[in-house]
Amino acid sequence: MKIVVCVKQVPDTKNGVVFNPDGTLNRGAMDKVMNPDDKAGLEVALQIKEKTGAEITVVTMGIPDADAVLREAFAMGADKGVLITDRVLGGADTWATSSTIAAGIRNLDYDLIITGRQAIDGDTAQVGPQIGEHLGIPVISYAADVQVEGDSVIVQRQYDDRTHKLKAKMPALVTCLAEEITPRYMTPGGIFDAFDKEVTVWGRNDLKDLDDGDIGLAGSPTKIAKASDKVRKGAGETVNLDPTESVKYIMDKLNEKHVI
């Protein structure tokens, strides 16, 4: 069995964000990590590998430095890595990104494709389902548990107030939730091997069945009109009183605003 796991190197938003003048993200200026939902997806693939001996190929799209996220995946136990990188692919929205990654995956053999639900930079949750759509295979998003049975995949799919247990014929695509799946750590031996392994690098010309009108900034149907730091409403008043006075203060405000 062959599994493709899509991972994204994302800026660590804990330390703030930096923009280019055109409103796109200056990824080079920020710390980077493997996107948490993608890491959960890789963990699911590794668990399937332990049971079935599946081969795992990790695919990422990004700047040349995104190689690092593939090394991390190797250190966790992935077998092969593909980096899709080319200047003409930059600035892509979810349509152009999913078109590009789907074209890359067409170069590979796969039974199961696993992605994270969403990336912490864009928070769109769109690229996974759209890759599946481009490839014409069933998609199950928001997976809390994934098991392979014969030629099918059985998934616990989370909704707001319920879980559906779903069965899809492979090849299929599943998107995973970090809240439900705890990834393993890299092993020392894995880290050592990770830097000897070869990463396959594909540029635009290695991607077949991909129209020039569907890639990069120019091939993105959505365009950024503006991007900015969020403007928040200012602070009100803060008081530091003893408990009795505090209660009186709150009661006055609640009465003033006719809450009670």
Binding site: T13, I120, A227
Partner: peptide, 14 residues
């Protein structure tokens, strides 16, 4: 909002 609520972006689909 994007980037964990740090920023806000306005998008068009012209």
């Amino acid at each position: 909002p994007a980037f964990g609520g740090n920023t806000i972006a306005t998008i068009a689909c012209p």
